[in-house]
Design a protein around this nucleic acid. Sequence first.
DNA 1: CTGAAAGCGCTTACAG
DNA 2: CTGAAAGCGCTTACAG
Lengths: 353, 353
Amino acid sequence: MRAHRDDRPPTIHDVAREAGVSLPTVSRVLTGSTPVSEKRRNQVLDAMKRIGYRPNGAARALVQGRQPIIGVVTPDVTYGSSEMIRAIEREARRAGYVVSVTVVDPYDLTRIDTSLDVLLAQPIAGVVVLDFDRYDLKELTTKLGGVPLSTISSTNDDEQRHIVVDDRLAARTLTEHLLSLGHKTVHHVSFPGPHGRIHPRELGWRDALTAANAPIPVPVQIAAAVEGERLIDAGRSSVEDLLRDPSLTAVFCANDQIAFGVSRTLAQRGFIVPDDVSVVGMDDEIIAEYWTPALTTYRLDFDWAGAAAIRILLQPAGVDGTTVSSTFGIKVRQSTTKPRQGPLPGRTPIGAH
Amino acid sequence: MRAHRDDRPPTIHDVAREAGVSLPTVSRVLTGSTPVSEKRRNQVLDAMKRIGYRPNGAARALVQGRQPIIGVVTPDVTYGSSEMIRAIEREARRAGYVVSVTVVDPYDLTRIDTSLDVLLAQPIAGVVVLDFDRYDLKELTTKLGGVPLSTISSTNDDEQRHIVVDDRLAARTLTEHLLSLGHKTVHHVSFPGPHGRIHPRELGWRDALTAANAPIPVPVQIAAAVEGERLIDAGRSSVEDLLRDPSLTAVFCANDQIAFGVSRTLAQRGFIVPDDVSVVGMDDEIIAEYWTPALTTYRLDFDWAGAAAIRILLQPAGVDGTTVSSTFGIKVRQSTTKPRQGPLPGRTPIGAH
DNA sequence: CTGAAAGCGCTTACAG
DNA sequence: CTGAAAGCGCTTACAG
């Protein structure tokens, strides 16, 4: 009894009438599930083209009981996340899903709500949460209800369907690299971990120093509020604190951005990196190898992590509880070398602006 | 007559039974469209929680005749695109949509097909195509069928619902900046435009030189196949060609990545940027201001462009044919200065590695 | 404020 | 190979 509504796009009903065939026949040429005679097939195809038909994804999803969207919830789109998102998108598309990314600020609780509402109102098959433990876990999972969930973060919390990107091991490896060059200890510029805890990268740094029986300097802390692009500036500011210790010969920075800021500022103050101070970052951003001096850093396998998150998300129940971890390897470049002898040289600014 | 199927998630039908109310009542507490008595409302909410109900987005989309996804088709996720995508996502979410990004290589025709198929099988309200004219326009629009479309690119092609990011004007402004410093001419490292045409950034450079009656050097061309991260390397290689002309005093690079490569390589060859050669890029990537020397570049308003694309996409018909353009402004930093006197100095490598 | 009924656009057994 | 019918999960007038 439905009148032809011009404000709605054409349906298979319209196609069937236009082509002079039945409704299921149209559906069959659409899905290819059942053979259709050459003649009718062409009639249908022509009719579709003529009236500008395109399938209604919602109806299709409904009848097939299939949710075609995979949501990604992420606190930011920095280098690491964007690599993971790319991998997630690739893997999801292979499985026939489409990916929707929602950037959700862990510190802005009210906006978490509205953002997730929009996402959850869609036909979503599941959600991947990046940097999982930066969120209020209880609140987030409650909010997500029964939506299938896979998570990626750098801590091993015995979550279900959780991927660990092993930051801690990577940090330890970088620190050990510096120690093996002969540095008596390694300083650290740290960002805060989730919920006031110590960040896994700091833990890995401590692991290495402890194992080597090296003194553990007080890490320079970057404020929790500093995000993304402003980390370079935070790195710059941290140099002041680092230089308080005249025995400084090596710094492990919590990520490449910070290391960019630190090495740049050291240079501007007249110190030579790496001869006066060795600097390492972490993440291996694209620019790292082009930096001056080319930055020693650690390449985490974000691509693998993203792909794995989709795989475990789409796997049927039973794989729950599995936790996998993934790292890639250290990239030794020009910013690290053996320690200088003696205390820090004079701080004559050369390239300061 | 449908048996209870345990393999399908609970529906409002199950909620209604569990709560002892009718189907529409459940729907009403879901949508909030009509008042529901406090008592029943709570019954329903409790029942939902108990049986782990969550709404089926596909059914909702179907009955409301609403496609909840906006697709973004983009050739890459470099700096400019990612800023636009962020703006698109923000604006779309405000309007209650979710955004799906599909990266589609313009040179890989077969994969264009499968990628778009996945996207178009979803309930999408419309598509925003970035860097529009790098695609085979006819093929792409055919493929997209009747899907509402808005486009962003740097050329003004009289498209419908098209946003022009005015690369040409920006390039002209940068070139004029160099000329105004006293440079007799400006060299150019160029990337290819769409379909073998000249890129708008190159056109803007020519505009400025022509207007100033300056000689027009042959631009150094970067191969069409070079994308994204490898542009730095392409920039590095282009220095060889640039140095063939001993009158070189200033280079306009088609983007920041290229400029990074050019300035780094010039420095390694013993030239001082900007004293020997001024270098400008374009896009104002985050790292540009931290580069050594801090890069003079041009900030395009990608945020505005992305937001505008969503706005015109969602506007009802009638706004077709509008074309808006947007630029932001030049950022003069440390990589440009007045020209040196005389020919290029000797090419003693200093920092070569 | 509440319930019975129709319908959104499509696919899938079910019978030919 | 083809058509008539039922149903996917939800919302929206329609009557109370």
